[in-house]
Write a protein that binds this DNA or RNA. Sequence first.
DNA 1: ACAATGACTCTAC
DNA 2: CGTAGAGCCATTG
Length: 102
Amino acid sequence: MDSEEYVEAVLELVERIPPGRVMSYGAVADALAERSGRSSARLVGSIMARHGGGVPWHRVVNAAGRLPPGHEIEARARLRAEGTPLRGDRVDMANACWQPAG
DNA sequence: ACAATGACTCTAC
DNA sequence: CGTAGAGCCATTG
């Protein structure tokens, strides 16, 4: 069961992601590990899959800059519209990687 | 406790 | 661009 506390923390952080930037599940998990104590890329992914609605989920990608399955087209279009550095069908993590610290 | 699953991550081929 | 194997942690049967 996903504690709403953790879910809210994830959604909050995802909403904090500025346009043109993205975060990897692992980065989100790592950033939330300080507030929840427990975190895993799989957990964040699972939460996004269940509660990803209502937040710019397209700003959350995996470590390889891959877009979430079933939404590649949507995510790619949104990212492109926001000016996110794209590299083919993936996100240019070298420039798009963002973190709450800066 | 065990087995299976998942919007993950890394390394190797 | 692809597959395969191991590690990861929580949920579910």
